[in-house]
Design a protein around this nucleic acid. Structure first.
Length: 927
RNA sequence: AGACCCGUAGCUCAGUUUUGGUUAGAGCGCCGCAUUGACAUUGCGGAGGUCGAUGGUUCGAGUCCAUUCGGGUCUACCA
């Protein structure tokens, strides 16, 4: 037999193929279902640690329930990821000297589909590498025809129900991607910017007022100045007019509570077309340009903001000709120069503020007045809030509900139109009068509305999150009433990160409640975010990303460096990243295999918000895999050596003990899985396999088999190992699918089982428990003997004689006699004797109600032993003091629960017993 | 401005809610010992923390309350 360690690369990919082709992951018809929908990854993306983590968790859940006999569906699919994908393809086109405009919409869409075809199965093959037992037979893509139909249907219904409307409003405009963004896609960054004070002359006078602004270039679009109505300094100005410098446009001065007298100069310029607050103020005062081309106040209905920036954020409109066509920031520089030259610029100072950036483009966004489509989120939010309040949906951990409510209670209407080409084109057609109609196609709209045509389709596409908000039911065939919807919706649970609670979770709840009249899932397990070992977020620019596949297969330093530095947005960081990577991984990364990686994820899956991925831990779990592998090899070897034949085998105290440990662990695991405590489940099984099965069951069996002279006893011993190991494999399978499946097959082969059986089909064993049978105490004795040896260097390798003296239960005596040969073998004893005899020279250890005596005439140093005993006595006396002080406290005895008091009393009895035994031993040595 | 999370052994983390109750646990690392017989990706033994700080409630606090220090996240933001 070869001695090389477990090599996962030899089995993992083959096994996955077998699973997949055997249709093991496909759902059945039983109504007792358990279903999960995968958070659809970006179709052209690649797997990162967060995916790895969450998919490991989902796979454990789905495998666990599948093995428990549930009809499971783990819905798989990918997302078209509108902006992200469009950006990538555009960049590729640019590299070829082309642009999307130059090739046109149809050709561009084809380019993206080609790109999807080229890179689209990378992520799905990576999911397979993780062992994820997804139902590939029902894989969906958010731009599949059926899915598109579902998205259109949803839009049309919302439109017809009046919950989607079109409006000219200020939106967050990304000037690079030239599209609108929803509030959530805005990243507010703290920056130090400048603030300028500029004077505006009062109309027809030489007087002036000073305003403060951080965006001087927007003054071209000013429609008013505003002061606080309670600000005595400026009250006299209200109702008068001011002149915009360099523009000579006259604007009214209004009073509004929005203005903070303490801030800036107390006078604010109002540019409703380029600032969200100004927009609201402008609306309140009905700012508009009247028929005489004068800017004036009016009713809210008359409000008509002016815009001085184009979609490329270049100056246009009522701004002076000279600035037309200038970029917004160039115009600012130029304008400040002019203002200064003409004496309008009074002051420039630094100011800490926040600026809105696009989460994809990382550019400063511009509030821009455009036509967009909005979803009435306030209406949809109500049932969605109720669903969580009524516990129809529960969050795990529960505190995320707070976050959810906080956002939902203040929800703003959702801008769902995007000025992109890759995505779901909004199913709206306009007639010649510009009237909008919703429908699946031009013909559909014409027929439904009795229109002659031709009609013009809306150019915009939908926010990607609109389509993914329908994910749990659109993947199951909605709007058709399919049997799958019936069986698997609502899904049982959703596993995702807190970073997309708003983007996705909340919106899914809103949409599903609306269309399905039920929740999308019953539980939301919010996982932590995987950070690096220093608690830093993993990011390309930090150069600390880890690829789960690299941890599985291993990677050379060269390849790792290449991966971490290619296509960097900030090349100046390259050197630092190379240095840091070389330091952390001087030899690259070893191969650990999927099972070890998965187990690492589970062990880290505690309820916290951040999960620091310590690379050191994965090594421990690879060793764990190796341990399991070798446990099997031991069993295999015994079976071969003793020509083992499978049959009914008689259990013994040891195998009962092991079965009981497995039973207890499986109960604990069940609870841990149900409460999403994969860390505790992982620790539980680790302990079971390593500390119970390998360290004791195998070790004790090893000696037992060696000593056995009766072939039927030997067969029983091996048979019991088979049984317990198989049950361990079953328990472990949802966590470590590969190695367990492989070993299960090998076990079957050893048993002469003909054909293939998978662990999933085998299900969990029906275990029952038995009472504590004393094996734990037996183990205590052996451990104590080890301590004695390690404390006394001169008897390290001696064969010793063990005497047990005191009140041992008859059942315990019987067990020890039954195991005498085995204990002697494992602890290197010649015999175990029960006696009350005193020994002149011996080492003695006080156990709970008996003592261990090792007679050692001539082998111990009495002084040393005396000292050791005195130290132990000291400890026991200290314990007694602590416990008795408790018991002497009347308050304690009176107020503490009876059980606690009894426990303390029991403890003191034990301690006093020990004390007595120790005192006797000491007295004997002293005599 | 509001909300939330974290601070426990050298390191990475459990334990803190439902249920306050032994002398606070694990893995890694460290120290000592062991070597070819499942496994050195091993075995055996050991050292190491008073639970960020302060105060309070209680017979009893890592656990509950208050205050405070340090680190972090999200939401909303005044030109």
């Amino acid at each position: 037999m070869d001695k090389k360690p477990y090599d996962p690369s030899e089995i993992e990919q083959t096994l996955y193929q077998e699973w997949e082709t055997s249709g093991l992951f496909e759902p059945g018809e039983s109504s007792e279902s358990y279903s999960l929908a995968i958070p659809p990854p970006n179709v052209t993306g690649t797997l990162h640690m967060g995916h790895g983590f969450q998919n490991a968790i989902m796979d454990c859940l789905i495998r666990y329930h599948r093995m428990s006999g549930k009809n499971t569906l783990w819905q798989v699919g990918t997302d078209h990821a509108g902006i992200a994908t469009e950006m990538v393809v555009e960049r590729r086109l640019n590299a070829e000297g082309k642009s999307k405009e130059s090739i046109g919409r149809a050709a561009f869409e084809k380019e993206v589909w080609d790109w999807k075809k080229y890179s689209g199965n990378k992520i799905t093959s990576q999911l397979r590498r993780l062992g994820s037992s997804l139902d590939w037979s029902s894989e969906r893509f958010t731009l599949d025809d059926e899915y598109q139909y579902a998205v259109q249907s949803a839009f049309i219904q919302l439109f017809e129900d009046g919950l989607i409307y079109q409006g000219k409003r200020l939106v967050n405009w990304d000037p690079v991607l030239e599209t609108s963004l929803s509030d959530l896609e805005v990243v507010n960054k703290d920056v130090v910017i400048k603030i300028w004070e500029i004077k505006y002359l009062l109309d027809s006078t030489d007087e002036f007022v000073t305003i403060a602004t951080t965006r001087p270039e927007t003054l071209f679009g000013d429609m008013a100045l505003a002061v606080n109505p309670d600000d005595e300094r400026f009250l006299h100005l209200v109702g008068k007019s001011a002149v915009i410098p360099l523009c000579d446009r006259v604007i009214p001065i209004v009073a509004d509570n929005y203005v903070d007298p303490e801030f800036g100069t107390g006078v604010v310029k109002i540019t409703p077309g380029h600032d969200f607050n100004d927009y609201e103020l402008g609306k309140r005062h009905g700012l508009h340009i009247n028929d005489d081309n004068q800017c004036c106040t009016g009713s809210e209905k008359e409000f008509d903001p002016i815009s001085i920036l184009s979609k490329e954020v270049k100056i246009i409109g009522v701004a002076p000709e000279k600035f037309h066509g200038m970029d917004r920031f160039d115009a600012r520089t130029e304008l400040l120069k002019d203002l200064d030259a003409q004496g309008f610029l009074l002051k420039e100072s630094e100011y800490e503020s926040t600026l809105p950036y696009g989460d994809r483009s990382d550019q400063i966004l511009e509030p821009l007045l455009t036509d967009q489509w909005y979803v009435d989120a306030k209406t949809l939010a109500k049932p969605a809030i109720e669903a969580v309040k009524s516990k129809e949906i529960t969050f795990v951990p529960a505190n995320w509900e707070k976050t959810y409510f906080q956002w939902m209670d203040n929800i703003q209407d959702w801008c769902v139109s995007r000025q992109l080409w890759w995505g779901h084109r909004i199913p709206i057609w306009y007639d010649a009068d510009g009237q909008a109609y919703a429908g699946h196609s031009e013909e559909d709209v014409m027929e439904k509305n009795n229109l002659a045509g031709p009609l013009i389709q809306e150019e915009d596409v939908l926010d990607t999150w609109f389509s993914s908000s329908l994910w749990t039911f659109a993947t199951l065939g909605w709007p058709e009433k399919t049997s799958k919807l019936e069986l698997f919706h609502p899904t049982t649970a959703l596993v995702t990160g807190f970073d997309i609670i708003f983007f996705w979770v909340a919106r899914m709840i809103m949409m599903t409640k609306y269309f399905m009249k039920e929740v999308p899932f019953k539980e939301v397990y919010i996982t932590g975010l995987i950070k690096d070992e220093n608690g830093q977020k993993m990011s390309k620019s930090k150069g600390n990303i880890l690829d789960p596949i690299d941890l599985i297969d291993g990677v050379s330093l060269e390849a790792l460096l290449e991966k971490r530095t290619e296509g960097m947005m900030q090349p100046q960081l390259k050197e630092k990243i190379i240095k840091q990577t070389k330091k952390q991984f001087p030899d690259g990364i070893e191969s650990y295999g999927t099972d070890a990686l998965r187990y690492t994820y589970y062990s880290l899956a505690s309820p916290g918000r951040d999960i620091n991925f310590d690379i050191g831990r994965i090594k421990g779990y690879r060793n764990f895999c190796n341990k399991i592998w070798n446990a099997f090899r031991f069993i295999e070897m015994q079976a071969a050596t003793h020509s083992y034949q499978p049959a009914e085998h008689k259990a013994d105290a040891l195998s009962d003990w092991m079965s009981q440990k497995i039973f207890q662990s499986s109960l604990n695991c069940k609870t841990h899985i149900e409460t999403y405590r994969f860390d505790l489940a992982a620790a539980e099984i680790y302990e079971l396999v390593w500390s119970n099965f390998c360290d004791w069951n195998i070790e004790l069996s090893k000696v037992a088999i060696q000593k056995s002279t009766d072939p039927s006893v030997t067969a029983d011993l091996i048979g019991n190992l088979f049984k317990n190991f198989e049950n361990i494999l079953k328990l472990l399978h949802p966590f470590m699918p590969f190695i367990t499946e492989e070993l299960f097959a090998k076990m079957n082969a050893l048993k002469g089982f003909d054909g293939r059986q998978f662990l999933v089909e085998a299900g969990f064993a029906n275990l029952t428990t038995s009472k504590d049978n004393g094996v734990d105490e037996l183990i205590n004795i052996i451990s104590e003997l080890r301590v004695i040896r390690s404390e006394n260097a001169n008897i390290k390798d001696e064969t010793l004689h063990l005497v047990l003296s005191g009140n041992l239960a008859p059942s315990m005596v019987k067990l020890i006699q039954e195991f005498e040969e085995i204990v002697c073998g494992i602890a290197k004893l010649d015999a175990i004797e029960f006696s009350t005899e005193d020994y002149e020279e011996s080492i003695e250890k006080a156990m709970t109600n008996y003592k261990i005596i090792i007679p050692l005439a001539g082998l111990i140093d009495p002084e040393e032993e005396l000292e050791r005993l005195r130290k132990e006595l000291g400890n026991v006396e200290k314990d007694i003091k602590i416990i008795s002080s408790k018991l002497e406290n009347e308050q304690f005895v009176a107020k503490a629960p009876e059980a606690v008091v009894q426990k303390e009393k029991g403890k003191i009895t034990t301690a006093e017993n020990k004390k007595l035994m120790l005192e006797k031993s000491i007295a004997k040595l002293q005599s």
